[in-house]
Design a protein around this nucleic acid. Sequence first.
RNA 1: GCGCUCGUAGCUCAAUUGGAUAGAGCAACGGACUUCGGAUCCGUAGGUUGUAGGUUCGACCCCUGUCGAGCGCACCA
Length: 528
Amino acid sequence: MKKSVIRSIQESLQREFILEKPANLSFGHYATPIAFSLAKELKKSPIAIAEELCEKFLQSDIFQEVTPIKGYINFKLSESFLDKYASWAIANENTFGIEERNESILLEYVSANPTGPLHIGHARGAVVGDALCKIGTHLGYKIDSEYYINDAGNQVDLLGLSLFLSGREQILGISVEWPAEFYRGEYIVDLAQVAKEELGLGIFENEESIATLSLWGKDKMLELIKSNLADVGIVFDNFVSEKALYNKWDESFEKLQKNNKTYKEGDKIWIRSTELGDEKDRVVVRDDGRPTYLAGDIIYHDYKFQRGYDHYINIWGADHHGYIARVKAAINFLGYDEKKLEVILAQMVSLLKGGEPYKMSKRAGNFILMSDVVKEVGSDALRFVFLSKKSDTHLEFDVDVFKQEDSNNPIFYINYAHARINQIFAKANKSVEDVLHVKLENLSEDAQNLLFSALLLPEVLDDAFHSRQVQKVTEYLKNLSASLHKFYNENRVVGSEDEEKFLKLFAMVGVSIRVGLKLIGISAKEKM
RNA sequence: GCGCUCGUAGCUCAAUUGGAUAGAGCAACGGACUUCGGAUCCGUAGGUUGUAGGUUCGACCCCUGUCGAGCGCACCA
């Protein structure tokens, strides 16, 4: 819809311009402040310029009115244009808003350590990533989703050690001495129990089996993580193992070396990340020869870029923000365009419980499991809460409030609108096909506004994806539902002389609600 | 101390990315024919956008200072 408008204006204007929505829908459907920027050039007042331009624009048949107001030019679309578009959308629901593009994107998100179940903080990145993936795919981007498994290094070792000690203490009844850092939490105790059943009691007897427990535990945790994700409808295209990539280190290292971006100091190897804005150079290989975590990420990003995507998106927890500079530097040093990598930060989620702050830390074991929240409020509500907020703002909510969010939940509000539409078709004893041919003309202003709102979905999706702000979609769905409810309360549908027109209008709203919900991973309810 | 992110109604968040009168929900208060399902709708109240400057036709948005919050500042991930 917007594209048709832009094309039409472009034809008569022959220059770049900004198209936006008027502050007030009664002014028109679209607007442009072009007269303001022309004012300087032409040395005329914006108001006079706007008036002159309006006449030119009126020649197009997609506009019913073009009016100047205080220098702004407002466009009102014609009913026949809106009707044609709506008929097409209703008949082609599955392709409504779908576009063709050639750009490929690699989207990496979650990538939580396989040392424990996902907690509520991970859920935010997970849900946002999944929604971006679904929306972007709908918009025609070829998106692959990927999860990077940190299955090498200290944290996994620590998992093995924690299982080992827990097994000795809880199962063998031996008193153990806990180190300063280890994984606590009930899942460790539970997992040690499973280890006993699958691997035998002997596994806790000898310290040499810690390595075995690490590997075994990591696999178990990964399974758990996958099922946590599946519970909210998230499935990844790829899982990439840090460990499996380690044999490519020489290859990546050689590139860095060739570009003179590493150096040796002491017995360590450093990368010159300072050259590209990092605070300091970073160690990539320790003095005992073990590569650091950064080395793993260098290999991984080398591997990513070798696969030749047009664009790369990483969703990271905000606590990793300090990491962006060094990874981008490394990508550049490897000979790639680091601007192709975009990092989205998902800000911390802080939980309250009865007003008391919850300190979330994987290591402390005092965290809220994503799966627990899903169990209590359901996947839809969890998704909706996280998708309603910009991902880069701190989010704080009280679990107790969250639990009682049922009738207050906007999801119910949206679903109610959707269910209402079905209900009214049933009441009228008509199907969508019955009313598809009806022309939407001579509509009241309210009806026309509702129609226009429903047709806006593709633009909203486009905007949400390109600004990486998924809350625009939830916001839109709430507003569209509100318009529907309002219209419903003010207009009698069944039995009125406009019945068929209104049904077609409602069908269009239903399409947008269904498609919109689907793209944020929520299925619309037919009945409630 | 340095860096990143953020600061908008009592609370949780929006604001077409520099545009027109800063908007929703919740909470509060007052209303809507025993209703095409009232899980809805209408109305009232609530704001110097943390704060002080600057940039310009125009600023919640950009720049500078300042205050406050969170997160980083590892050879952990």
